[in-house]
């Protein structure tokens, strides 16, 4: 079958593309758009969370979304998180506490954390662990991630 037309908002910009319907959102981002922040770690099983992006405000695994399924929707990747070159408070907090070891799971974990804070501005440890339960970190730096989310929450709440 031929290509399909897909229109959606990617990192605050409207895009319209003609692509193969067999592409996942993850493959599209990496190969067609050159946005390599979302990673393929588990091989498209939806098991590891390294490919996490925010779709209509919710953290999802982009390896389990076909490109046609984002038509008319809004996607935010790690590349769309900073504003005018300034990192998002979640990114800053991850760096500050060293919740970034090899870095492979970091974009996914940052986006899952951001999605949590958008819904729950003042999360407790359980909320954070729950929100990050789909993001595997093989350096096992989980404690620092929880700490980072607390710091980011404080930063975001102070700004209000």
């Amino acid at each position: 079958m031929g290509n399909i037309q897909v229109q959606f908002i990617l990192n605050n910009e409207k895009i319209s593309v003609k692509v193969s319907p067999g592409l996942t959102l993850l493959e599209f981002l990496r190969t067609e758009m050159g946005l390599t922040g979302a990673k393929d770690s588990c091989g498209g099983e939806g098991e590891c969370g390294a490919c996490t992006v925010i779709l209509n405000g919710e953290a999802v695994n982009s390896c389990l979304v076909l490109i046609g399924q984002v038509d008319g929707h809004s996607v935010t990747t790690i590349e769309g998180l900073s504003v005018r070159g300034e990192l998002h408070p979640v990114q800053k907090a991850f760096i500050e506490v060293g919740a970034i070891q090899c870095g492979f799971c970091t974009p996914g974990a940052v986006l899952a954390s951001k999605a949590l804070l958008d819904h729950v501005p003042d999360p407790d440890d359980d909320d954070i662990r729950e929100a990050l339960s789909g993001n595997m970190c093989r350096c096992t730096g989980y404690t620092k991630m929880v700490e980072a989310v607390h710091i980011a929450a404080r930063e975001l709440n102070n700004g209000k």
Binding site: G46, E58, V60, N61, S133
Partner: peptide, 9 residues
């Protein structure tokens, strides 16, 4: 079921 990402889809 699964994790947040799975349940959202």
């Amino acid at each position: 079921i699964g994790c947040l990402q799975t349940r959202a889809r």
